[in-house]
Design a protein around this nucleic acid. Structure first.
Lengths: 203, 203
DNA sequence: GAACGAAGTGGAACGTGTTGCTGTCGGACC
DNA sequence: GGTCCGACAGCAACACGTTCCACTTCGTTC
């Protein structure tokens, strides 16, 4: 996000980091404009100004590419969310607050959301590493919201909390899929999420 | 399932019903043997002994085809399940019993499950009708399990029950996806389901 | 600075989902 | 019987993900 991020994936040269970034940016732009179908490997390569073969050297498939882009998005979102206090008196309120905020963000970019969600759902085990990144961010977001504020050092979320967060993540994902695929409206999705959260988090 | 099913989709001629059945059977066989990738439209057409164009006349895309096949499967499963008593003292026990049984069935046919789940997750709004069939079967299965036995006539599941069943369906679907895509083992999936059900159904 | 190898370029080629076209067949209607 | 029409067969063609290959470029090593 800032000018130089020295901690960004430990790739060899600056040129390589730059290529990788250009590729992910192109993916992001294309996805945002036209969704899953618009992210065509030739188009990504062209827009990122790399050869098709190079693109495949960096990301072995379209799915890897999109899931990596999703990972970057979620990572940024998680960073933003988990450094703030979350308003709300109960964990259900707080989780709903956060999820509503994220949903609003995603609904503002339906094409982007569609592309990334599709990719996530279609990924197989070869994408496990990238998927795991996304899952961790999602769990971090939800556990943080349940807790209400930044974790005290050394005070990680309990196993129980993580299990709950995962279930919530599952429901969220399903809801996202049915929204993305046009099977339910934004309002229905929100309502469903609310019902589910209250069901799961009965403080 | 039986020799003649007069209620089967109100298609014109017997020859057409037969073609449709041959196509779905071919889809089933190919999916069972080789999963999503093995269900190739040319192969389905050949095995069903219809022309490629005809296949597309019956099912406008591979996704429609697979989701329809999934619908048939779920429908049969729902019929089987919902006519029996479900053992278990609590609704959580009963739901777990049913889901475990279904999971076992699906794990016995991993390729088939992979193909159908993938298709389900990839479907867009043009497949909404077929998807809805699947969703209804799923909800019916879960509400039946919660209740414990066949519904008394006129005593439908309450709105609350349906909402709960949907949430459970969501979690199940997510778990299924992560199993199908090789991100978690059968045992982990089962464990996760158990945790989730106990979380949601605290009688 | 010459040689080497890894990484990148450019582009052809292949597989599979999807579309479209042309001809054939079988039943409905006169 | 002849005609018409819709469904089907057979097949070519296109689009896009993916692979592969020959060539170039650039940094490293001697």
């Amino acid at each position: 996000m800032t000018i130089a991020n020295p901690a960004a994936d430990e790739l060899g040269s600056a040129a390589q980091r730059d290529r990788r970034k250009r590729i992910l940016d192109a993916t992001y732009d294309l996805a945002k404009a036209g969704g899953f179908d618009a992210v065509q490997m030739r188009a990504v390569a062209e827009q990122a100004d790399v050869a098709l073969g190079t693109l495949y050297r960096y990301f072995p498939s379209k799915i890897h590419l999109l899931v990596s882009a999703l990972g970057r998005q979620f990572d940024e979102a998680a960073q933003r969310v988990t450094t703030r206090e979350v308003p709300g008196d109960t964990s259900a309120d707080r989780v709903l607050h956060v999820l509503r905020r994220m949903s609003r963000g995603m609904q503002g970019d339906p094409q982007l959301t569609e592309a990334l969600t599709r990719a996530f759902m279609f990924a197989d085990s070869s994408v496990a590493a990238e998927i795991h990144v996304v899952g961790m961010s999602m769990t971090a977001i939800v556990t943080h919201a349940m807790r209400g504020g930044p974790a005290a050092p050394g005070q990680e979320a309990s196993e129980q909390d993580v299990a709950v967060a995962r279930v919530i993540g599952d429901v969220w994902l399903s809801a996202l899929v049915s929204w993305v695929t046009g099977r339910s409206s934004a309002a229905e999705t929100a309502q469903h999420m609310e019902t589910a959260i209250h069901l799961i988090l009965r403080d």
